[in-house]
């Protein structure tokens, strides 16, 4: 059986005639879009340290665990967090730096792990592309150090390593940093949650129930 494209021409015709009196020439479209007034706050005004403090406050507000460390302390800090979790088997994206995989734990490097293999992991360690302080958001572009989407989804425990220079204050600052929109983006603001039963916020439904962040100062 073949699947039809449906009524493409019919629908587009209806749209074109419905907007005939207001639609711009294709050539002017970009210009018109660029002319939309954007008087909202695009760039934050906080100092570097206040920005980091805001991110940490917002992440903790979502029940995420946040630890700060210096670059040279990173491997020890990762090891300490993994130990403290009481977990043993961790997934790692294919491009995770070797220094981020301390010994003493069982590491499963993702080179095409099956869903079932990922499902039984105790946790996962990844990098990130950016973080937005204002909303406490971690942004993954699913680069080799951030891993496939499934890797940060099925395990119940996620440790995300973030460099201080990856932190921006506002969401528009994140968008200003992205030159070429990636094919995959996941914005994570705290662990999964629901308020579907009597609006009571319950942490942890289907995604990782534990979000941990190490903020690395250069």
């Amino acid at each position: 059986m073949s699947v039809t494209q449906g009524s493409r021409a019919k629908v587009l015709d209806r749209i074109r005639s419905a907007t005939a009196s207001v639609a711009a020439d294709a050539a002017n479209l970009h210009e018109l879009h660029a002319a939309i007034p954007r008087s909202y706050i695009r760039k934050g005004e906080l100092s570097e340290s206040a920005k980091i403090a805001l991110l940490i406050e917002r992440l903790r507000d979502y029940d995420a665990d946040v630890v700060e460390c210096k670059l040279e302390e990173l491997p020890d800090t990762i090891a300490a967090m993994l130990s403290a979790s009481g977990r043993h088997t961790f997934g790692a994206p294919s491009g995770l730096p070797a220094a981020w995989m301390p010994s003493g734990f069982d590491w499963k490097l993702d080179g095409g792990l099956t869903h079932e293999q990922i499902e039984v992991l105790d946790g996962v360690v990844t990098g990130a592309s950016c973080a937005v302080a204002d909303s406490g958001t971690i942004v993954l572009h699913h680069t080799p150090s951030e891993g496939r989407r499934v890797l940060t989804l099925l395990p119940d425990w996620h440790l995300c390593i973030l460099y201080a220079d990856q932190v921006v204050e506002t969401l528009p600052e994140y968008f200003a940093r992205v030159q070429h929109p990636p094919a995959l983006v996941t914005w994570i603001s705290g662990p999964s949650a629901t308020a579907d039963i009597e609006m009571t916020r319950i942490k942890g439904v289907h995604g990782p129930r534990h979000l941990n962040v190490i903020l690395v100062h250069h």
């Binding site: 204002d134 406490g136 958001t137 496939r148 094919a183 914005w187 994570i188 603001s189 949650a193």
Partner: peptide, 16 residues
């Protein structure tokens, strides 16, 4: 301030 998860994908990504 932001919902826990927002996903964006474009078409098909091999392996993901």
């Amino acid at each position: 301030r932001m919902n826990p998860y927002t996903s964006l994908w474009s078409g098909v990504t091999p392996g993901d």
